[in-house]
Design a protein around this nucleic acid. Structure first.
Lengths: 136, 136
DNA sequence: AAATAAGTCTACTTAATCAATAGACTATTA
DNA sequence: TAATAGTCTATTGATTAAGTAGACTTATTT
């Protein structure tokens, strides 16, 4: 299961995707519509900004907005940015790899099974973009 | 990512699958070979016993063993037993479903995307069994 | 049959990570 | 310069992971 943080990030990005090109969107507006604790959302959006997915504007008329077209960012990229591994176990993760303490990956049955599921998952998440998060 | 608990459970089940039909296996033997904290493993095995996957024998010569052939239990079943949801978000989980606070599932783009990944993952995990966890 | 050794079972404690909250600070607009 | 809105730091609370202590059960040995 994705962490709450990652789930919130995807919800927020979906909301911003729908408003792409319409100027800055208030944190409070996203929080209200997507039912996300506002203070938690603040830190998530800030992190997405630091990762060059979002830009922000301070002061009146400010808010957050997507830098690029929603089609440019895949769900796999979005999930990884906010810290969520996609693989089910660390030893088959591309971006958060950790070697198992107890097994040889060449012969480990669990490793093989988890590799297959990771590939199946990635095949989907690397094809879909933020544009697909827009409701309709 | 699966919880540590779930990962340990799969490791242990793989070890017991390899020893199926050879009598009880010591907790300490599993812990040592699979590098699992022994007290944590105790609680996991106990839970698997209460879920009718394992049986145990106390006293000298005791230990844990699989009740049925490894081929009888799928990885999807095993993961769910020890408490791990397979879906990436609650609103597409079969066994740990929770309705989203903020969206209508009929139109939610995130829901659709996550449904697809869940199906792809389940297709694999429901086909593979504990027998596939045996190294080789 | 009693003593002992080998094992599981139960309850409790500590540590680490994740989620959420609070409030001061800075920049922008009007 | 007043009001608005993002930025940053620190703290609290909840959940998960790990470790500790000891009681209980079974099998073997003598």
């Amino acid at each position: 299961m994705l962490s709450k943080k990652t789930q919130y990030a995807l919800k927020a990005l979906g909301y911003l995707a729908a408003k792409y090109g319409q100027g800055p969107v208030l944190i409070s507006e996203i929080a209200k519509n997507k039912k996300i604790p506002i203070k938690f959302l603040e830190t998530i959006l800030l992190e997405l900004k630091q990762n060059n997915v979002l830009e922000s504007k301070k002061g009146k008329g400010g808010g957050y907005y997507l830098i690029e077209s929603p089609k440019k960012t895949t769900l796999a990229q979005a999930i990884r940015l906010v810290g969520g591994p996609i693989a089910l176990v660390p030893c088959v993760s591309l971006n958060f790899y950790e070697k198992c303490a107890d097994c040889d990956e060449a012969t480990c049955g669990l490793n093989k099974a988890m590799l297959q599921t990771r590939d199946a998952t990635l095949k989907i998440l690397e094809k879909k973009t933020l544009a697909e998060l827009i409701d309709g």
